[in-house]
Design a protein around this nucleic acid. Structure first.
Lengths: 123, 123
DNA sequence: CGGCATCCACATGGATACTG
DNA sequence: CAGTATCCATGTGGATGCCG
């Protein structure tokens, strides 16, 4: 279970497909946002992260960070034992996702912004 | 079921989150590759697309293109009735995903390439 | 604080077979 | 060609509650 990093996926017959391979790593509902929060606000603890992402349950957040850790996109460090504290930070691999996250952010703002404005009442 | 376009997702309490919103649209295993293939090779039919993505089953491809169509990222046109033919092409929204796809492609090549080389025997 | 346990609903992906 | 039908396994997300 420790070698989750390598999930080569092939497409088009013979060719290995970087896009699908990448998609299988971060192509989930919450994965990208968590990376984004860590990119923008730096390392943080569990609850802090949960706040930053708000809307995610602790169970799901727990699942996701564990998954991201296995994929070596983020590190989990135990900062303190007595008042038990951990800190999540991005690995270099994880930080390198910045262009992907930024492109998603840009696209979202360009194409979904107005829709969200219109339905702001949903909040 | 026709208003799938608008799926505003909020994060961080009050703020609307473009990244998560985008992730809910294309954050799946096959969605990004399909967009990539259409970006690279232009409009194509069902089987052509299935070939290009190879590894996907017709059922899943069928599900995904229907989903992408609902999300207005892709158009489905019936080209011919007698020999029944359709053609899938990207909408402008869909084509605008190029930066996202390219960033994913880049990241995949930079971070997963060697792993795939090493385990090429898996193919 | 930083989770895990449990239970559940639904989404996603895949195999196989079949059709107009 | 372009799917649909069926069945099934697993994944993903969410609610609630509890714990050291």
């Amino acid at each position: 279970m420790t070698e989750q990093t390598r999930l080569p996926v092939w497409c088009g017959g013979e060719e290995w497909c970087p896009v699908t391979s990448t998609a299988t790593l971060i192509g989930r509902k919450w994965h990208p946002v968590i990376v984004e929060r860590l990119l923008d606000d730096g390392p943080m603890g569990f609850s802090e992260l949960k706040e930053a992402v708000d809307g995610i349950s602790s169970k799901v957040l727990s699942d996701v960070v564990e998954d991201l850790e296995q994929k070596e996109l983020l590190d989990r460090a135990i900062i303190s034992e007595k008042p038990f504290r951990v800190q999540y930070s991005l690995t270099d691999r994880g930080a390198d996702l910045r262009p992907v996250i930024e492109a998603m952010d840009r696209w979202g703002r360009d194409h979904l912004q107005s829709a969200s404005d219109e339905e702001e009442s949903i909040v």
